[in-house]
Structure formats: C-alpha cells, structure tokens
C-alpha cells in the first residue's frame, strides 16, 4: 500500500509573472492520514494542491506519490491515484447529466459497459446521490452538486482524495452531511479549508502555510491550542474551541472536542 504516500520535497513555485507562491515546502503524508492544509488567503494552498496531481509543475523540488515521482511521463498514473475535488462544483460538473459526469473518469480510464455502470452506481451510492443519476447538473442544489462532484472523483477509485474548500457555500445541513461523508472515507485525505471547525472534526493533522512556506505541521489539536501561531498566520481558533464552557469541559476531560 506504499502508493498511498504523498511526499513533497523542497517544493517551490514561481508564477510566470514573477510571484513566488510556494517556497521550499516539504512534508510527508502516509497511508490513511487525514490532513488539513490551512492558511490565510493567498498563502499558497490552492497552488500547492494543483501541484499534487500535476496541474502545475514545480519550479524546483519534487513530488512523490507512493514510489512514483511526478513527471510528465507518470502523469496519467498519478492522476488516477490522486482524485481532486475542486472548490466550485460548477467547474467540475461539465457533462450533461450526473450519470455521464460520474462516468467521465472511468470512461477515460478505458472502462466500458458494466464496469462503468458499476463504478458510477457505487460512487453515487457512497455520497448518497443515487437518486440524482439522470439529472442535469444545473438542476441540482449546492449541496447536491458538491456530493456529485465528490462522486465524480470517487468513481475513479483514487487512493488519495484531495479536496479544495469542500464546505464552502453549503448550508449547515449539507455541511454536516459532507463532514460525515469525509470522516467515513478510508482514503488518505488532503483538505484545504477556511472552515476550521470542520478541519477540527475531520483532520487529525494540520499543515499551516504562511506566505508560501510551511509555518507549522502537527496534530490539529496542538496547533489550534497555539493562539500565538494562529494569530501570526492570520488565522483564528475554531468557534468550537473559543471558550465555550461545554467544549472546554470536554477538552479538559479527554483532550479533544470529538469524544
């Protein structure tokens, strides 16, 4: 199962217009981990994500997915391994119906007939969207779109799931559903978000980016306790940790808000 490992070594990226977006970023994520990448606007989160499946190529440094180094030659394999869910589901759902959209990936993998059918059904089942199968994407609500967008990636059976701002723009109910969904995944998960409450619930480990550099990397609970650090990185403690007597009591008793 070594291919579930994501390793980023000394990654730097400078945009063509000269803006340095990432500088000497290194981390290693192992099988089954659930990792949040957080940071202020413009800290380089999205740029980092786009490197993970080769949509952007590094100015220097390297990325390994499992045993494979990300190069132009290994790109198709890497893209099969790393499933990417984008922030705006309208960018991701471009096919005429939900079914065809979820089938888009498997079809590109060269599957056909029953195999595609099976994958689509499974993926839609997992996100609880089986009833939306024949609908066109523009008839879906925001939460439905998000879930279908995740299904389009799940149908490719990736080993690593990368999600950009999964909870943005969702109502509380849809957000709650999505959090449940993300916690159920067995994949390695890499999530960027400003929704730190969600991060606190879903991710055990957090990497904080600050102006293109790794400012901190450690257990979510520890980092969120460190008010100084958060403030320095233009972040804030999640609401659930902000002096709510009940949560505080829970944290005191068992070390995390989750129990």
């Amino acid at each position: 199962m070594s291919h579930h490992i994501v390793e980023v070594k000394n990654l730097s990226h400078i945009y063509p217009d000269g803006t340095a977006a990432l500088f000497d970023v290194s981390f290693r994520i192992t099988h089954g981990e659930s990792v949040a990448i957080i940071g202020a606007n413009g800290a380089g989160k999205s740029t980092l994500l786009l490197h993970l499946n080769g949509c952007l190529s590094a100015t220097s440094g390297e990325i390994r997915i499992g045993d494979t180094r990300l190069t132009a030659g290994t790109l198709p394999d890497i893209r099969r391994t790393v499933g990417m869910v984008f922030q705006d589901p309208d960018d991701q759902l471009f096919m005429p119906t939900v079914f065809e959209d979820v089938a888009f990936g498997p079809c590109n993998l060269g599957l056909s007939g029953m195999d595609v059918e099976q994958r689509v059904s499974d993926a839609l089942e997992r996100v609880g969207a089986a009833h939306l199968r024949e609908k066109p994407p523009y008839h879906l609500s925001g939460g439905e779109k998000k879930r279908v967008a995740i299904a389009t990636v799940l149908s490719m059976m990736p080993d690593i799931l990368v999600m950009d701002e999964p909870t943005s723009g969702l109502d509380p109910f849809a957000r709650r559903q999505l959090i449940g969904l993300m916690r159920d995944f067995q994949h390695t998960r890499i999530i960027t978000s400003h929704d730190l409450d969600m991060v606190y619930e879903v991710c055990d480990r957090t990497i904080i980016l600050k102006r293109g550099m790794v400012a901190a990397d450690g257990s979510t609970g520890d980092l969120f306790e460190n008010g100084e650090l958060l403030k320095e990185c233009q972040l804030e403690r999640p609401l659930s940790l902000q002096g709510c007597p009940e949560c505080a009591a829970r944290i005191r008793s068992c070390g995390t808000a989750k129990c």
Partner: peptide, 23 residues
C-alpha cells in the same frame, strides 16, 4: 479563468482530448 479551471478538472479525471460516451 473558469475555462482554465474546467480544463484542469477534466485533466484530473484523465481527459486526453477524446470524449467517450458511456451510453
């Protein structure tokens, strides 16, 4: 920019210039 994002989303799902219809 949206077109660029869609293109990235397509590439991420193995698009290589040809559409294959499942139906």
């Amino acid at each position: 920019q949206r077109a660029e994002r869609i293109h990235i989303a397509m590439l991420s799902r193995g698009f290589r210039g040809e559409f294959r219809s499942p139906k």
